[in-house]
Design a protein around this nucleic acid. Structure first.
Lengths: 133, 133
DNA sequence: CAGGATCCGCCACGATACTG
DNA sequence: CAGTATCGTGGCGGATCCTG
Protein backbone atom coordinates (compact mmCIF):
# COMPACT_ATOMS: atom_id res chain seq x y z
CA UNK A 1 0.00 0.00 0.00
CA UNK A 2 0.92 3.55 0.02
CA UNK A 3 3.16 4.39 -2.74
CA UNK A 4 4.49 7.49 -1.15
CA UNK A 5 7.19 5.76 0.79
CA UNK A 6 9.42 6.44 -2.11
CA UNK A 7 12.55 7.39 -0.31
CA UNK A 8 12.19 4.28 1.75
CA UNK A 9 14.22 1.97 -0.42
CA UNK A 10 13.47 -1.02 1.67
CA UNK A 11 11.68 -4.06 0.48
CA UNK A 12 9.13 -2.83 -1.97
CA UNK A 13 10.89 -2.87 -5.29
CA UNK A 14 14.13 -3.74 -3.68
CA UNK A 15 16.19 -6.67 -4.87
CA UNK A 16 15.07 -8.68 -1.90
CA UNK A 17 16.61 -12.05 -2.19
CA UNK A 18 16.91 -10.59 -5.51
CA UNK A 19 20.33 -9.63 -4.86
CA UNK A 20 20.51 -12.86 -6.72
CA UNK A 21 18.31 -11.98 -9.63
CA UNK A 22 15.68 -9.59 -10.87
CA UNK A 23 12.38 -10.02 -9.18
CA UNK A 24 10.74 -11.21 -12.34
CA UNK A 25 12.93 -14.27 -12.44
CA UNK A 26 12.40 -15.27 -8.87
CA UNK A 27 9.92 -18.02 -9.30
CA UNK A 28 11.84 -19.31 -12.23
CA UNK A 29 14.98 -19.45 -10.16
CA UNK A 30 12.96 -21.30 -7.61
CA UNK A 31 11.99 -23.88 -10.19
CA UNK A 32 15.54 -24.40 -11.32
CA UNK A 33 16.66 -24.67 -7.74
CA UNK A 34 13.98 -27.19 -7.01
CA UNK A 35 15.13 -29.26 -9.93
CA UNK A 36 18.75 -28.99 -8.92
CA UNK A 37 17.79 -29.79 -5.38
CA UNK A 38 15.99 -32.88 -6.53
CA UNK A 39 17.33 -35.88 -4.79
CA UNK A 40 18.40 -37.56 -8.00
CA UNK A 41 18.49 -35.29 -11.00
CA UNK A 42 22.05 -34.16 -10.57
CA UNK A 43 23.21 -37.69 -10.08
CA UNK A 44 21.45 -38.83 -13.19
CA UNK A 45 23.02 -36.00 -15.13
CA UNK A 46 26.35 -36.90 -13.67
CA UNK A 47 25.89 -40.51 -14.67
CA UNK A 48 25.32 -39.46 -18.23
CA UNK A 49 28.38 -37.29 -18.52
CA UNK A 50 30.46 -39.98 -20.19
CA UNK A 51 27.90 -40.75 -22.82
CA UNK A 52 24.52 -42.26 -23.36
CA UNK A 53 23.17 -44.94 -21.05
CA UNK A 54 20.23 -47.29 -21.03
CA UNK A 55 17.58 -47.42 -18.38
CA UNK A 56 19.07 -50.32 -16.46
CA UNK A 57 22.53 -48.87 -16.81
CA UNK A 58 21.28 -45.79 -15.08
CA UNK A 59 19.78 -47.84 -12.33
CA UNK A 60 23.18 -49.32 -11.64
CA UNK A 61 25.00 -46.09 -12.19
CA UNK A 62 22.93 -44.33 -9.59
CA UNK A 63 22.91 -46.67 -6.63
CA UNK A 64 19.89 -46.42 -4.43
CA UNK A 65 17.51 -44.92 -6.93
CA UNK A 66 14.16 -46.61 -7.29
CA UNK A 67 12.52 -47.36 -10.60
CA UNK A 68 9.84 -44.88 -9.87
CA UNK A 69 12.26 -42.09 -9.11
CA UNK A 70 14.47 -42.91 -12.03
CA UNK A 71 11.53 -42.78 -14.39
CA UNK A 72 10.20 -39.57 -12.94
CA UNK A 73 13.56 -37.89 -12.88
CA UNK A 74 14.25 -38.87 -16.45
CA UNK A 75 10.93 -37.49 -17.53
CA UNK A 76 11.51 -34.20 -15.83
CA UNK A 77 14.98 -33.83 -17.24
CA UNK A 78 13.73 -34.68 -20.68
CA UNK A 79 10.93 -32.19 -20.39
CA UNK A 80 13.36 -29.50 -19.43
CA UNK A 81 15.41 -30.37 -22.46
CA UNK A 82 18.39 -31.49 -20.44
CA UNK A 83 18.45 -35.02 -21.75
CA UNK A 84 17.17 -36.90 -24.76
CA UNK A 85 15.32 -40.16 -24.83
CA UNK A 86 15.74 -42.47 -27.76
CA UNK A 87 13.68 -45.63 -27.97
CA UNK A 88 14.53 -48.36 -30.44
CA UNK A 89 11.70 -50.48 -31.71
CA UNK A 90 13.42 -53.74 -31.03
CA UNK A 91 12.83 -56.69 -28.87
CA UNK A 92 13.86 -56.64 -26.19
CA UNK A 93 13.25 -52.91 -26.07
CA UNK A 94 16.18 -50.58 -25.78
CA UNK A 95 16.12 -46.97 -24.67
CA UNK A 96 19.10 -44.69 -24.61
CA UNK A 97 19.37 -41.54 -22.58
CA UNK A 98 21.89 -38.85 -23.30
CA UNK A 99 22.67 -35.31 -22.31
CA UNK A 100 21.64 -32.52 -24.60
CA UNK A 101 23.83 -29.51 -25.15
CA UNK A 102 21.82 -27.76 -22.50
CA UNK A 103 22.30 -30.62 -20.10
CA UNK A 104 26.00 -30.60 -20.72
CA UNK A 105 26.19 -26.93 -19.99
CA UNK A 106 24.47 -27.51 -16.68
CA UNK A 107 26.92 -30.27 -15.96
CA UNK A 108 29.67 -27.70 -16.02
CA UNK A 109 28.03 -25.80 -13.22
CA UNK A 110 27.42 -28.97 -11.32
CA UNK A 111 31.07 -29.81 -11.60
CA UNK A 112 32.10 -26.58 -10.03
CA UNK A 113 29.63 -27.20 -7.26
CA UNK A 114 30.98 -30.67 -6.68
CA UNK A 115 34.45 -29.24 -6.88
CA UNK A 116 33.60 -26.70 -4.26
CA UNK A 117 32.10 -29.36 -2.04
CA UNK A 118 35.18 -31.51 -2.37
CA UNK A 119 37.51 -28.61 -1.74
CA UNK A 120 35.76 -27.46 1.41
CA UNK A 121 34.76 -30.88 2.48
CA UNK A 122 36.94 -30.95 5.55
CA UNK A 123 36.29 -27.37 6.45
CA UNK A 124 32.56 -27.93 6.58
CA UNK A 125 32.92 -31.18 8.45
CA UNK A 126 34.95 -29.42 11.07
CA UNK A 127 32.24 -26.90 11.59
CA UNK A 128 29.54 -29.49 11.74
CA UNK A 129 31.01 -32.01 14.07
CA UNK A 130 32.75 -29.92 16.62
CA UNK A 131 34.72 -26.96 15.50
CA UNK A 132 37.54 -27.77 17.84
CA UNK A 133 40.40 -29.32 15.96
CA UNK B 1 35.93 -44.83 -22.32
CA UNK B 2 34.69 -48.10 -21.09
CA UNK B 3 36.71 -49.50 -23.88
CA UNK B 4 38.51 -52.33 -22.25
CA UNK B 5 35.32 -53.80 -20.90
CA UNK B 6 37.08 -55.68 -18.18
CA UNK B 7 35.47 -58.89 -17.13
CA UNK B 8 34.79 -57.19 -13.88
CA UNK B 9 31.69 -55.35 -14.78
CA UNK B 10 31.68 -51.89 -13.62
CA UNK B 11 28.95 -51.68 -11.08
CA UNK B 12 30.42 -53.07 -7.91
CA UNK B 13 33.18 -50.70 -6.93
CA UNK B 14 32.53 -48.60 -9.93
CA UNK B 15 32.25 -44.85 -9.86
CA UNK B 16 28.54 -45.16 -10.06
CA UNK B 17 27.10 -41.73 -10.01
CA UNK B 18 30.63 -41.22 -9.14
CA UNK B 19 31.39 -40.02 -12.48
CA UNK B 20 30.81 -37.01 -10.36
CA UNK B 21 33.10 -37.81 -7.51
CA UNK B 22 35.01 -40.56 -5.77
CA UNK B 23 32.81 -43.05 -4.03
CA UNK B 24 34.06 -42.02 -0.63
CA UNK B 25 32.61 -38.58 -1.06
CA UNK B 26 29.22 -39.68 -2.23
CA UNK B 27 27.28 -39.26 0.93
CA UNK B 28 29.04 -36.02 1.57
CA UNK B 29 28.08 -34.77 -1.85
CA UNK B 30 24.58 -35.79 -1.00
CA UNK B 31 24.67 -33.67 2.12
CA UNK B 32 25.94 -30.64 0.29
CA UNK B 33 23.34 -31.13 -2.40
CA UNK B 34 20.63 -31.42 0.18
CA UNK B 35 21.73 -28.19 1.70
CA UNK B 36 22.00 -26.43 -1.61
CA UNK B 37 18.68 -27.88 -2.60
CA UNK B 38 17.13 -26.52 0.54
CA UNK B 39 14.21 -24.39 -0.22
CA UNK B 40 15.71 -21.33 1.39
CA UNK B 41 19.40 -21.59 2.10
CA UNK B 42 20.56 -20.25 -1.22
CA UNK B 43 18.18 -17.35 -0.98
CA UNK B 44 19.40 -16.51 2.47
CA UNK B 45 22.97 -16.64 1.28
CA UNK B 46 22.03 -14.49 -1.65
CA UNK B 47 20.38 -11.98 0.63
CA UNK B 48 23.56 -11.67 2.61
CA UNK B 49 25.80 -11.05 -0.33
CA UNK B 50 25.75 -7.30 0.07
CA UNK B 51 26.66 -7.38 3.71
CA UNK B 52 25.36 -8.31 7.10
CA UNK B 53 21.68 -8.28 7.88
CA UNK B 54 19.53 -8.60 10.94
CA UNK B 55 16.92 -11.21 11.51
CA UNK B 56 13.98 -9.10 10.47
CA UNK B 57 15.89 -7.73 7.54
CA UNK B 58 16.32 -11.25 6.32
CA UNK B 59 12.64 -11.90 6.72
CA UNK B 60 11.91 -9.02 4.40
CA UNK B 61 14.77 -9.81 2.09
CA UNK B 62 13.52 -13.31 1.53
CA UNK B 63 9.83 -12.93 0.83
CA UNK B 64 7.71 -15.88 1.77
CA UNK B 65 10.02 -17.42 4.32
CA UNK B 66 8.48 -18.25 7.66
CA UNK B 67 10.11 -17.50 10.98
CA UNK B 68 10.55 -21.13 11.62
CA UNK B 69 12.30 -21.76 8.33
CA UNK B 70 14.44 -18.68 8.60
CA UNK B 71 15.63 -19.73 12.03
CA UNK B 72 16.34 -23.27 10.95
CA UNK B 73 18.07 -22.28 7.78
CA UNK B 74 20.23 -19.79 9.62
CA UNK B 75 21.19 -22.39 12.15
CA UNK B 76 22.18 -24.89 9.51
CA UNK B 77 24.19 -22.37 7.57
CA UNK B 78 25.91 -21.26 10.69
CA UNK B 79 26.70 -24.80 11.66
CA UNK B 80 28.24 -25.44 8.31
CA UNK B 81 30.35 -22.38 8.76
CA UNK B 82 28.77 -20.52 5.88
CA UNK B 83 27.50 -17.62 7.93
CA UNK B 84 28.25 -16.00 11.26
CA UNK B 85 25.81 -14.97 13.92
CA UNK B 86 26.60 -12.02 16.10
CA UNK B 87 24.28 -11.13 18.96
CA UNK B 88 24.57 -7.82 20.75
CA UNK B 89 23.49 -7.71 24.36
CA UNK B 90 21.32 -4.68 23.95
CA UNK B 91 17.70 -3.92 24.33
CA UNK B 92 16.00 -4.34 22.08
CA UNK B 93 18.13 -7.26 21.04
CA UNK B 94 20.06 -7.09 17.81
CA UNK B 95 21.53 -9.96 15.87
CA UNK B 96 23.59 -9.64 12.75
CA UNK B 97 24.16 -12.36 10.21
CA UNK B 98 26.95 -12.27 7.69
CA UNK B 99 28.64 -14.54 5.22
CA UNK B 100 31.89 -16.15 6.16
CA UNK B 101 34.70 -16.55 3.67
CA UNK B 102 33.41 -20.04 3.03
CA UNK B 103 29.93 -18.76 2.45
CA UNK B 104 31.19 -16.17 0.05
CA UNK B 105 33.03 -18.78 -1.92
CA UNK B 106 29.85 -20.78 -2.23
CA UNK B 107 28.09 -17.66 -3.38
CA UNK B 108 30.34 -17.62 -6.39
CA UNK B 109 29.10 -21.02 -7.43
CA UNK B 110 25.55 -20.01 -6.77
CA UNK B 111 25.99 -17.04 -9.00
CA UNK B 112 27.08 -19.16 -11.88
CA UNK B 113 24.09 -21.39 -11.30
CA UNK B 114 21.76 -18.42 -11.28
CA UNK B 115 23.55 -17.12 -14.30
CA UNK B 116 23.03 -20.38 -16.07
CA UNK B 117 19.37 -20.40 -15.13
CA UNK B 118 18.91 -16.90 -16.41
CA UNK B 119 20.77 -17.60 -19.60
CA UNK B 120 18.80 -20.70 -20.48
CA UNK B 121 15.62 -19.44 -19.00
CA UNK B 122 13.76 -19.24 -22.27
CA UNK B 123 15.22 -22.40 -23.65
CA UNK B 124 13.97 -24.43 -20.72
CA UNK B 125 10.60 -22.75 -20.75
CA UNK B 126 10.19 -23.65 -24.36
CA UNK B 127 10.83 -27.27 -23.62
CA UNK B 128 8.52 -27.32 -20.65
CA UNK B 129 5.47 -25.64 -22.00
CA UNK B 130 5.22 -26.99 -25.45
CA UNK B 131 8.29 -26.88 -27.59
CA UNK B 132 6.31 -25.31 -30.38
CA UNK B 133 6.61 -21.59 -30.02
C1' DC C 1 13.91 -54.61 -20.87
C1' DA C 2 11.66 -50.40 -19.76
C1' DG C 3 8.43 -48.74 -17.58
C1' DG C 4 3.19 -47.95 -15.33
C1' DA C 5 0.11 -48.10 -11.32
C1' DT C 6 -0.73 -48.11 -6.42
C1' DC C 7 -0.19 -47.78 -1.55
C1' DC C 8 1.91 -45.58 2.19
C1' DG C 9 5.27 -43.55 5.62
C1' DC C 10 7.84 -39.74 6.63
C1' DC C 11 9.38 -35.18 7.26
C1' DA C 12 10.01 -30.57 5.26
C1' DC C 13 7.55 -26.78 5.51
C1' DG C 14 3.83 -23.48 6.76
C1' DA C 15 0.68 -21.30 10.21
C1' DT C 16 -0.09 -19.99 14.64
C1' DA C 17 0.74 -18.88 19.38
C1' DC C 18 3.91 -17.74 22.98
C1' DT C 19 8.44 -15.77 25.25
C1' DG C 20 12.96 -13.37 27.06
C1' DC D 1 13.39 -7.80 18.26
C1' DA D 2 14.62 -12.37 17.76
C1' DG D 3 13.50 -16.09 18.35
C1' DT D 4 10.96 -20.99 20.57
C1' DA D 5 7.12 -24.52 20.83
C1' DT D 6 3.52 -27.10 18.81
C1' DC D 7 0.41 -28.88 15.51
C1' DG D 8 -1.15 -30.13 10.81
C1' DT D 9 -0.45 -31.08 6.11
C1' DG D 10 1.34 -32.02 1.17
C1' DG D 11 3.89 -34.38 -1.48
C1' DC D 12 8.41 -36.55 -2.12
C1' DG D 13 10.14 -40.66 -2.42
C1' DG D 14 10.45 -45.94 -1.32
C1' DA D 15 8.48 -50.61 -1.92
C1' DT D 16 5.85 -53.63 -4.38
C1' DC D 17 3.23 -55.58 -8.04
C1' DC D 18 1.89 -55.49 -12.92
C1' DT D 19 2.45 -54.88 -18.26
C1' DG D 20 3.79 -54.31 -23.43
Amino acid sequence: MKATAAHETTAAHLPGLCSLAPVEHQDFIRQILDRVGDKWSLFVIGALQDGQLRYTDLQRAVPGISQRMLTLTLRQLQQDGLITRTAYAEVPPRVEYALTRLGTSLLTIVHSLIGWAAAHHDEIREHRYGADV
